[in-house]
């Protein structure tokens, strides 16, 4: 952890939306905005919008590089999505940013109809997805995957780290239609190797274990799962890790094949255990005729309080010890 974090008093809410797993890790500052600014130099059809969340979504490098192609619509998420959709219908690719809670809960109809149904080239980068800040339920999008997977023709991506996010920023420009991406902001850790390649719609086997236990994970919980798998190694359990960055369309075949090769499963996600990855996995497995003991690491169906990220993650059972216990089969 950074020195700033270490000196923060216990219970103090730290920098919003930054991951806490960055101690002793290489990090990249604002990979989203920096990559988008560069992509904007290569592709003049790219425009960017924010709903008063420029600074807090890391998109300002794009504004500075391409001020004429940047639009801040103010605190108005419906306007954000409508304006982006309109721009898209004149041949632009419209990247837009706000917090996950606002674009999902408030602008849902607009994402569904002006975005996805209209096949509009709108690429939504949603800040602070799941439980990534201590500002309480108003700012914690713990059900965003559940909501968004209900929209037809929408692509949903939950990147793991800076390496993947950088690739996703570029990839979504060529994924047809509207895309919802869970944004990692601030100092984003590098977890995946240089040879990692994000392929839309495909899961990636990151770690092959002994066949005893397999972890299926998405988003930054994949990084935590890799850390937990290392910790479990020391206890004699070699876990596999299957990373599922694309939530929709879901890579059912890879999940079923992975499950078939393991005696028991852990599903880890930065989301409620209902309606997100765990639900998708269980649907896929049941349909595929694969029944395995399955333990869900994720958030309860509840609204959470304010508090430090460490406090909340430990209290609600999604921190590193919780994932490690799940892999080891401990209570």
């Amino acid at each position: 952890m950074t020195s700033t974090r270490d000196t923060a008093p216990r219970g103090h809410t730290r920098g919003m939306g930054e991951l806490i797993d960055i101690a002793d890790k290489t990090t990249v500052l604002a990979p989203f905005g920096e990559t988008l600014a560069q992509l904007g130099r290569e592709r003049p059809e790219i425009v960017a919008l924010t709903a008063d969340m420029g600074r807090y979504s890391d998109i300002l490098p794009f504004r500075d590089a391409h001020p004429d192609r940047f639009f801040n619509v103010g605190m108005a998420e419906q306007s954000l999505v409508m304006t982006a959709a309109g721009l898209a219908k004149t041949g632009k690719i419209a990247y837009c940013t706000t917090y996950s809670v606002f674009v999902t809960r408030r602008a849902y109809d607009f994402v569904a109809i002006a975005g996805a149904h209209s096949k509009a080239e709108v690429k939504i980068f949603a800040g602070m997805p799941g439980l990534t800040n201590g500002y309480g339920a108003t700012h914690q999008a713990t059900e965003d995957l559940n909501m968004m997977r209900g929209i037809a023709d929408l692509t949903i991506i939950d990147p793991c780290d800076a390496t993947e996010l950088t690739q996703v920023v570029r990839a979504v420009a060529d994924i047809p239609g509207t895309v919802y991406v869970r944004l990692l902001r601030g100092k984003v850790p590098v977890e995946l190797g240089e040879d990692y390649r994000f392929v839309p719609g495909k899961a990636a086997l990151l770690r092959e274990g002994s066949g005893d236990v397999g972890v299926i994970s998405t988003g930054y919980m994949t990084a935590r799962s890799l850390d937990a798998a290392k910790a479990a190694d020391n206890r004699g359990v070699q876990a596999s890790v299957l990373h599922v960055p694309t939530i929709k369309p879901f890579d059912t075949a890879a999940v079923v094949e992975f499950a078939r090769r393991h005696d028991r499963l852990v599903v880890a996600e930065n989301h409620k255990t209902t309606g997100g990855l765990a639900s998708l996995v269980t649907e896929a497995l049941y349909q595929g005729g694969i029944l395995r003991p399955l333990r869900r690491v994720g958030l309860a169906d509840s609204f959470f309080e304010c508090g430090s990220q460490e406090y909340l993650e430990a209290k609600y059972g999604v921190d590193l010890p919780a994932v490690t216990r799940a892999i080891l089969g401990e209570v």
């Binding site: 304006t83 309109g86 607009f110």
Partner: peptide
């Protein structure tokens, strides 16, 4: 109206 605003901006950029 919001999509019209976006189209207006797109046409202006072009």
């Amino acid at each position: 109206l919001g999509q019209a605003v976006g189209m207006s901006l797109g046409l202006r950029l072009d």
